[in-house]
Each structure stands twice: as C-alpha cells, then as structure tokens.
Nucleic acid binder design. Structure first.
Length: 572
RNA sequence: CGGGGCGUAGCGCAGCCCGGUAGCGCGCCUGCUUUGGGAGCAGGAUGUCGGAGGUUCAAAUCCUCUCGCCCCGACCA
C-alpha cells in the first residue's frame, strides 16, 4: 500500500486523553479514533492488526477442530431470562427495546444464544463433541471504560463454545482450547502466562486466564518463580499457616483509642505491628450481615468470601448497619461480646495469632490481648484473604510472586450450568436424555492488539511482532530522484510478489518526517532507499526492534526480508 | 455511583480571575528554495469558544441548567 492512498493520520503530539502506552500510540499512529467513551473506530492500519490477530485465532481454532459460525449481536431478553442473566448481568448489559416494546440486549457473550441453537439442532451424542466459535463485536457497558482498546464498551472478541456428552469429553475439549490458546498467544509474539482463575459472571467449575505480563495490566497474577503454580489474585489459594504464635496468653484489657479507626492509626497509636491487629469487617449478603476477621496486614478477598457463602456478591455493611450490629461506629468493631448474634468467619491466619488487638464495640476503644476461644468464638475458618508476595505456594513449590497482567483470554469448563437452565439435552447411546456438558472460551482480539503494544514499544513508538504487524516492511524512499523512485517502485513490486506486505511511504516528505512516522507505526523492518546509498550500490534494511541497519544490494532485499520474516528467529 | 479535572481551529494549548474586534505553536493550502532524523521564506484558509437559558449596551469570560470526555476511587473500618 502507498501511504498517500491510505488514511494514516499520525499525530505529532500525544493526545491529551490518553495515558497508557497502547492507547497513546494507537491514537498517534493513526490506528484508532474515539467515537464515544470506550467506543472506537478502527482505521485502516488498526484494522490490519486486528485482522492479523483474527487470522491467527481462526487458524488455531480451526486446527483445534472448532468451526466458525456467526451469531447475531442483538438477542431477545427471553433467552437471558431463561438463565437468569437478564437480571444477574446487571448494568453491564446493554439493553434496548424494539418498536414493539420487546426487550433486547447487545450480546456481551453468547452462551444463551449458542445453547438455544444446539438444543434445537443437536439431538444425538453422535454429533458430539461440537465446538463452535465466532469472531464478533461484543458489548459490555463497563463501569469505567479506559485505556483505549484495553477496556472498551464495544470490543472484538472470539468466543467459542464446546458441547460434550459427558464430563470426560468436556475436559478433553477444554484441554484442546487451552492448548490452542497457548499457540495463539505464542504466535502473536506475546509474553504471557496461563493462570488459574475465578469464573465470575460466566460461571462454571474450572477456568484459566491467559495473562499478558505488563505493568499496565489491571489484573494481578500470582505465581511461583520456579514452580508450576500460577493463578490470578482473586483465585490464588493461601494455605493455612503451619506454625502458630508461641507467645503466652496475656490477660485481655480495654484501652482508649480516641478517634483511631484505621489499621495505620491504631497500630501506630498503640505501637504494635499490623500483624497483631485484627480487622473486624461486617459484610452483607442478600440474606444476612456477618462478621469477617482478618489480620491487619492482610486484605479480604471478596471473591473467595462470596464463593464460600454461595452468593453472587458480598458488600461491606453500611455505617448504619455497623452501628446497629456492634453498638459502635465504624472503626471500633470487634468479635468480643458482640451485642448482636451474627455469624463470625475468620481467615486461617487468625487461628495462629495470639494476643490480638481488636475493636471494643464501643466508641474510641480497642481491646488488647484478645484471644481465640478464651475471649471470642469463630464459627468458621477459611481462606479469605488475598495472597501476598512471599506467601508459600499452595502447591508447596516455593514462594509466591505478584505481577500485573492483561487478561487477553479465558477458558471455562462450564459443566451443565447453562444446559440445565436451558434444558439442552442430547440422547446418549442408551437412548437416555443427558444434559450437554459445556465449555466456553474467549479471546479479546482488540485487547490482544493493545496488549501487544504494551509489551512491544519504545520511546519512539510501536515495535510490532512480525505475525501481527500491519505491514512487514515500511519502504522509505528518501528523495524524489528518479533513481530512488525507480528503485523503490521496483522493490515494492518484488517484495509484493514474494508475499511480503509493504507500506510504501510515497509522500514527498523530508527524511526525518518519514523516519519518525515509521518508528511510530512500528513495522518490523524499514527499507531505506537514498541517493547516497544507491550511488554505492546499496539500500538499507533496518530492524525496528534493535535499530540494526544492514546495507545490501537491492537484489538481495527480497531474499533477506523473506528469511527474516519466515525464519525461526523473527527477533530481528 | 463518589471525588477531581477538562471541553476555545485537525492536534497541543493560551485567553476566562478583572466582560469590550478570538489568539499561539504544530498541522493544512499556494508559491519558491530545500531534501539522510519532525526544513526556510513569503502568502493564505480554518472557529456554532460543547449545548441551552439568563445577567448586561456588550459574554469564550459572570450566573443557572445541561451534555460530553479524562483521571482517581468505589467502601479493608
């Protein structure tokens, strides 16, 4: 393609609206433009990258035995009411009414639609396993869209759904997708890690997320450096402590802590370690108010709490609820002599702590040397906290490290969650109706493109991995001289014949402008043709990533570029 | 949803406090010169100052309402 025939509105300045690297560079490189918050137009250059990612996804999905179809973006509320997600999905679901006042939504994911299709069309186990996928625009009315394509309200996703006759088959389908995802993200040139994950709004039993490791990631990944354990923070298990505090029990006593509410205030006022303090948090579920005890230096993991309680979500109780339940304002709640009968849950670490500092359930007072069983009772111990760096691995293979990651894909083993609610049954070999066992598998295509930039850029711009680059070669003739122009035209033609994608900067611009735009756009290889070089019989081939320049005769260009692109080491 | 910030030319911004002809840089258009890392000179075009209402002789500027966008937070007691 010639630059003059392509809409590539590069920007010299950073747009004020963009903070993160990928957002800024995609705007500056003329790849995307914003239409509304979290809603973007893909310009030709951006779309080329999207198509590259889609191509890799499509190849690997097909190779894994999945078949492509395309479902509608709009779907009727009835399907969503069958599974309860019309209500459960909440405000994230884009809803609208048609002219007859019937409720519809824009699909955020398609379990309902695909399950409806399969229950109608597939009756026999003979037709299973079945895995259908699509690549499509999805809609989620995010609470806070941000970072350009990273968290949009409209985004491109590949979603796949597998149907099996039994659990064993479903696990096999899951494993195939897991393997396919490994290949996809590897081929995209990303440094990533598959981690155990919670199942969230989608539901199901088993799940892995594929995380691109990057500082700007919104998710936290927990893993062992040398071991095999990796999970996201929501999921990461924390084993109970193996040693308990050997300190002798001290007599409990009340101390005045005027206006000291937070962990920091109380610990510095009493000159104690946060490890001695116990936070007494009041949580509300749909049904009850309950108490959660957590050590001062730990954080409650609400996903774990909700899962333990078997509810969708838990919220912290309001100050009023706290007052009513504990007889004290927020900041002075404690487990000792609670006025109201409530369930008390505690993180495992509480069991191993002695002589704890807790709220006194009266204003401006705490209790010191509170001890389990002697002074208060706990109804249930559980793993309720977030893992921290240095915690032992739940697999016993070392200590945990934390890192930030961008979630680019997630696979779920759903079991019969949807098939049961929607009565998607198939006949087995004995003629018995059985619920289809499902899995679902998503890849954020547009987010993958953004994540690739987060991981591959420098101060000057993007450095595309070869497989998803919008063009392989950026052809930069530096003058309008006949010799340079003819050589450029010739090489453009030769490279094109060899199947190499070339962006030909045919603008009558100064060298600096072309170089800067080329660095910004980030094609892996820059082919520079200037009068000086030609006079000496060579052109220059520059590797964007390393800045290395090779001078070579024009006749060797096609062969060299081909070997770099197709060869095993594309790390040029 | 709460807090903060911002809407003025394609982009980045100034002007607003203290009302009085709407500016700067880059970009864009024309011409000449230039041509290996964002050229020089000369000439030129470009704005419902986010929108609505109000105050005033007069509003980008003051007041009210409203829309949009960005950032942080969303309860760890």
């Amino acid at each position: 393609m010639r630059t003059t025939q392509m809409l590539i509105p590069t920007l010299r300045d950073d747009p004020g609206e963009a903070e993160t690297v990928s957002h800024r560079l995609m705007l500056r490189a003329g790849m995307i433009r914003k239409v509304a918050a979290g809603v973007y137009t893909y310009l030709p250059l951006g779309l080329r990258v999207i198509r590259k990612v889609e191509g890799i996804v499509r190849e690997e999905m097909n190779r894994a035995g999945a078949q492509e179809l395309l479902m509608p973006i709009a779907s009727p509320a009835e399907l969503w009411r069958e599974t309860g997600r019309w209500d459960f999905y909440g405000k994230e679901l884009f809803r609208f009414k048609d002219r007859h006042e019937r409720d519809f939504c824009l699909g955020p994911t398609h379990e309902e639609v695909i399950t409806d299709l399969i229950r109608r069309e597939v009756r026999s186990y003979r037709h299973l396993p079945l895995n259908c996928y699509q690549i499509q625009t999805k809609f989620r009315d995010e609470i806070r869209p941000r970072f350009g394509l990273m968290r949009g309200r409209e985004f491109i996703m590949k979603d796949a759904y597998s149907f099996d006759k039994d659990e064993a088959g479903a696990q096999l389908s899951y494993q195939k997708m897991y393997d396919a995802y490994q290949r996809i993200f590897t081929r995209c040139g990303l440094t990533f890690r598959a981690v155990e994950a919670d199942t969230g709004l989608i539901g199901g039993d088993v799940s892995h997320e594929f995380m691109v490791l990057a500082e700007t990631g919104e998710a936290t990944v927990v893993y062992t450096d040398h071991g095999t354990y990796a999970a996201n923070l929501e999921r990461a298990e924390v084993p109970p402590p193996t040693e308990s505090d050997p300190a002798p029990l001290q007599p409990i006593k009340a101390v005045s802590t005027p206006n000291k509410r937070t962990v920091e205030e109380v610990t510095s006022f009493l000159n104690i370690s946060p490890r001695q303090l116990v936070k007494t948090l009041l949580y509300k579920t749909g049904q009850e108010v309950l108490v959660v005890l957590i050590r001062g230096d730990h954080e409650v993991n609400e996903v774990k709490l909700a899962r333990l309680l078997g509810v969708n979500e838990v919220t912290l109780a309001s100050p009023l609820d706290v007052q009513v339940t504990t007889n004290a304002p927020v900041g002075f709640a404690g487990p000792v002599d609670l006025k109201t009968k409530v369930r008390v849950l505690a993180d495992h670490a509480i069991k191993a702590t002695r002589n704890m500092v807790v709220g006194a359930n009266q204003p401006d007072a705490h209790l010191v040397n509170a001890n389990l069983d002697r002074d208060f009772k706990v109804d249930q111990f559980a793993d309720l906290r977030n893992a921290q760096a240095g915690d032992p691995s739940p697999r016993g293979d070392g200590r945990l490290t934390l890192a930030k990651g961008i979630e680019v894909g997630q696979v779920f083993l759903l079991g019969t969650k949807y098939s049961k609610k929607m009565n998607a049954t198939i006949l087995d070999a004995q003629g018995q109706e059985r619920l289809a066992v499902m899995g679902c598998y998503g890849i954020g295509v547009s987010r993958t493109a953004a994540a690739a930039i987060e991981q591959n850029h420098d101060a000057k711009g993007i450095i595309w991995p070869v497989p998803i680059a919008p063009f392989h070669v950026h052809l930069l003739p530096l003058s309008q001289s006949t010799a340079v122009q003819e050589q450029a035209a010739h090489l453009y033609d030769q490279l094109g014949r060899a199947g190499i994608e070339v962006l030909w900067d045919d603008r009558d611009e100064r060298a600096g402008v072309k170089f800067n735009d080329a660095d910004l756009i980030g094609a892996p290889f820059h082919l520079v043709i200037g009068d000086k070089g030609l006079a000496q019989g060579h052109v220059e081939l520059k590797t964007r990533k390393t800045g290395t320049v090779s001078k070579l005769p024009p006749s060797e260009v096609v062969g060299t570029v081909s070997s770099w692109i197709n060869g095993p080491s594309t790390g040029h």
